[in-house]
Design a protein around this nucleic acid. Sequence first.
DNA 1: TTGCAAAAGGTTAGCGTTAACTCATATAAT
DNA 2: ATTATATGAGTTAACGCTAACCTTTTGCAA
Lengths: 334, 334
Amino acid sequence: MTRKLQKATLADVAREAGVSMMTVSRVIHGTGRISEDTRQHVRQIIEKLEYRPNRAARTLVTKRTNMIAFVVPDITNPYFTEILQGVEEFFWREGYNVMLANSNENPEREKALLDQLESTMVDGVIVCASRLSDDELIPLIEKHAAIVTVNRNLPHHLGSVVTTLHPRGYRAVLAAKYLYETGRRRIGYVNLVRSISSVNLEMFMHELEDLNIAVNPSWYATCKPTWQAGYDTGKVLLAQHPELDAVIAGNDLVALGVMRAAVEQGLRIPQDLAIIGGDDILMASQVTPPLTTFRSDKYSIGTMAAELLLRRVEGDLTYYEHHYDDVLIIREST
Amino acid sequence: MTRKLQKATLADVAREAGVSMMTVSRVIHGTGRISEDTRQHVRQIIEKLEYRPNRAARTLVTKRTNMIAFVVPDITNPYFTEILQGVEEFFWREGYNVMLANSNENPEREKALLDQLESTMVDGVIVCASRLSDDELIPLIEKHAAIVTVNRNLPHHLGSVVTTLHPRGYRAVLAAKYLYETGRRRIGYVNLVRSISSVNLEMFMHELEDLNIAVNPSWYATCKPTWQAGYDTGKVLLAQHPELDAVIAGNDLVALGVMRAAVEQGLRIPQDLAIIGGDDILMASQVTPPLTTFRSDKYSIGTMAAELLLRRVEGDLTYYEHHYDDVLIIREST
DNA sequence: TTGCAAAAGGTTAGCGTTAACTCATATAAT
DNA sequence: ATTATATGAGTTAACGCTAACCTTTTGCAA
């Protein structure tokens, strides 16, 4: 059994089958008028030669790659992975492949990625939790034919959007409200770094004042959305502010890092410190005590984003907006 | 500011710059002899027209896509994600993009994926923890120019390999030995489904007999490598065999599922039941009690696999083998 | 018998690049 | 002054496929 070095081309199949290339092409696509006999015969030759269409050639003429890109800040974050799974599943069924573009929480890299992707490589892009400011992001995506963003608003003509039901950043306010109702009075907040984090924080303080909840800027910190960052930030925050009786974190990974830091400092959870996370990753329900957090059906977020992208890829440039429900799931960490 | 509908091509740049297409091509690749003046001028025009090379056209003539595929059974499993991160990082630096092929633990889908990938789409493929038997896998990868497998042996001429230092399946024996030494006498084993799982199990029993450790086939189960499967399997196994005083799981996700099931049945860990996992995912160290497991530096596994693949992509078809160290990390679950 | 349409398939051209070759000019060596 | 050589380009022909148009054959109503 020798290894096939040269792949068969359409021309090879056509020659072997004694028909024109177009006939073979038509058989492959199931288009045009072909007699049943010819069809069968061509199919046999395709099998025999193990012909596989050359994607690049096809792309060159059709301008379609059947590939979409998923741009994400951190592929090890389970939140994004589950979304990705939804996206992958959806597009697999539709005959598309998914290219992964991991910016590794690095805005410069995200830019480079988005810029590269322009090279006729993908039919569309899903941008997940972009770390870029509008001023940076917009010029980069203007050139793409089809865009959908997750957790990020966009000028309507640029692409469709999947976001939370609650306005971005408002979840922390809900969390604070709940904590206040359960008797907590000094509430810390570990926000996630992103372009709009300062806006987030201001709104947070403003709303808390309206609710008559104690506000103290030094109780609030900002960190990267990783477990390690949450742990480091929690350590400092809790050491400097032993008066805190609750902490809200931007996402679960950070919340769990803070929880670890708290435990190491001898705090009992929830007796001494209540903790709330943000996206209900698997780990949140598995730690002791289980983490109170906001529900998010990540797989659905993925399929919704994929569906919206497919519409744009197929030429429907209407703006659509999907919202996913993110209610508070109360567990034993509060 | 109107949106550019037509992308600029090499021909456009050439015309605008008043040179031939080859000159532009040479400037882009930094090859051939070009005067500094021309180079600068062409660069300016490229900027001005926002020219980006068309990948498909380039691929058609060079036969290189600058894209590699990462085939993985479950993208939500943190074990694979961290490997993927290593792969992505490495190839990003080398100017390659990574295509994600998620088989979702479905062998048929893995086959389809591998078959599809043949269409001149990728320069190489990393196959991670394949769920296919050798008979299925080998014909599928024979056609690819460059292959590297992770946790899977391969005929040497087909591709390079990254595996554990301990022969596959032998870890469970090590775990059993350790458990025996710490006083456990009735050791359960939840193996992972894969093509070689029965071989695994037989070896396990054989080795245990040699060590004079009690063997009982009904203490051993097999399940999918997910938390849920581990939980379900653990529930049944522990209910039917309350005599068990230890369980070894194929990976951490399963171990944590079993742990949950055990806790729900009122077992104290490690007093009533010791548990050992398999790949040291983040969650393993975060649950209570922290899970005893085998170390695996997943990021390095990724970069090693990537490095080996790059060699093959670049034409060095020597067989290389990388082993990663997987020592037992003893935590409080045992 | 003519006419005409549907069926079945062929021809031509071009998608945007690059490899391989060719050609003109300037400079250096004889 | 003449030949060699390097420099700085340009030309031509693919790469493998498909869109758009064109041709032939056959069946059948008028």
